[in-house]
Write a protein that binds this DNA or RNA. Sequence first.
DNA 1: AAACGCTTCATTGTATACAAAAAGAGATTT
DNA 2: AAATCTCTTTTTGTATACAATGAAGCGTTT
Lengths: 214, 214
Amino acid sequence: MNVYERMKQALITGKYKPGDRLTEEALTEEWKVSRTPIRSALKQLEFDGLITPLKRGYIVRSFSQNDIRQIYDVRSLLEGYAASLSAIHRTEQDLSDMHKANEDFKTIIMSRGTNKTEHIQDVLKKNHKFHDTVIRASKDPHTEDLIRKVVVLPLVFHSFYWFEQRGLEQSFELHEVIIRAIEDQDSARARSAMHEHIYQGRDRVLEQLKRSDL
Amino acid sequence: MNVYERMKQALITGKYKPGDRLTEEALTEEWKVSRTPIRSALKQLEFDGLITPLKRGYIVRSFSQNDIRQIYDVRSLLEGYAASLSAIHRTEQDLSDMHKANEDFKTIIMSRGTNKTEHIQDVLKKNHKFHDTVIRASKDPHTEDLIRKVVVLPLVFHSFYWFEQRGLEQSFELHEVIIRAIEDQDSARARSAMHEHIYQGRDRVLEQLKRSDL
DNA sequence: AAACGCTTCATTGTATACAAAAAGAGATTT
DNA sequence: AAATCTCTTTTTGTATACAATGAAGCGTTT
C-alpha cells in the first residue's frame, strides 16, 4: 500500500479526526517518507473530498448532518441512474456476477465473525463489491467515475451502523430485488429499488448520528 | 495563471490533441518550470479526466461519440437535479443573479463580436456563468462539485458549435424558462427544462461531430 | 529465424535544499 | 488600550540531484 492508500485508511478508520491539522512535515515524520509523496497524497485526498484545504495546509474534513443527507441523496440519484442503465445493457456475465456478489454478501452477514471490526470490514467490502458489479453493468465509465467519487465519503462516518442484523438482511433482500429488475430489463424498477436501498442506508446513518449526538 | 490552468487551456483550445504524449521533461521545457509543478498539474488534469494515465506518463484523452453522449447524459441528470433543488432553496438574491446572468448572455449573443474566437470564448463564459448561478442556488455543494467535474469535459470538443445564432437564441429562451420555473418553485418543471436544454446542446455537438467526420 | 536474457536508455519516483509566503509575537505609535 | 508595523518563525512552493523502474534494442542460443 502506498502513502495515499494508507492515509485514506487512516481517515476512514478515524485515526485522523475531523478538524485535525495535517502538515506536510508532521506527516513526513509519521509515514517515514519525504514531502514529495506526502504532497501527492494530500492532493489526491483533497480531490476525494476527505480533507479541506486551508490557505496553508489541510484539515480533516468534518461533515454536518446536512452534508450527509446531501451526499446520500446525490449518490442515490447516480446509483439509481446506473442501475437503470444496467437494466438495459447487462450481459449474462454481469447477471451471474451480481448473483455471486450477493450470495457472498449473504454468507458474510450470516456468519458471526470472530473479530468485530474485522467482520464489519468484510461486510463493507462485500457490499461494495455488489454495488460495483451493478454499476459496472451499466457500461458507462463516466457515471462510474462520478459514483466512485461520491461513495468514498460515506465510508468515513458509517463504520458503525452496519451492526444491526435486521438492516443487513433488509439490504440483502433489496439487492435481490435490484438484480431481478435488472434481469427483467425493467429499468424503472431497477432505479427505484436502488433509490430505496440507498435511502434506507442514509436513514440508518442519520438515525445513528442523532442518537450518538444526544 | 498557474501551470495547471494554462495546460488546461491548452487542452481545451486543442493545442494538445488527443493521443499526444505528455512527458514531464518535455513539459518542463515548454512551460519553463521544474518538474514539481508539472507533476502536480498532470495529476490534477488526470482527475479532471482530460488526460489518460499510462504505465509511464500520460496521453491526451480522446473521446468517442459514445463518450460524449454519456457525458452529456449524466450532466443532464445532475444539472436537472440541481435545478430542481434550486427551485426549492432559491433566495431573492439568487433569482436576480440568474436574471442578470441571462441578460448578460443575451447581450453577448446579440453582439456580433470583432474577433471570432474571442467572441466564442465570451459566449462560453457567459453561458457558464448562468449555469453556475442556477447550480449555486441549489445550496448543495456536493452536487455542485460533481457537476464541475463533468462540465470541464465538453469544453474540449464544443468550441465550435456555438456559432449557429439560432441555437444560441434557443438557449437564451430555455434559460428564461428555467428561471421562471425556479421563481415559481416548480421544481419538476425546472428539472425538465434543464434536461431539455442540455440535451439540445448534446445533440448539436453530436450533429456537428457527425458532419465533420464525413 | 524465433525466443530468451542482458545491457542501455528513457522516464518517473523520491529526497532534499533553497525560495517565497503566510502566521504569529513583540514593539512602537496614536 | 488598540492598531499597525516589522521581525521572526513556521509552512508550503519550486528546483534539482539521485534512485528505481519500465521500455527498447542487441546479441546469443537454440
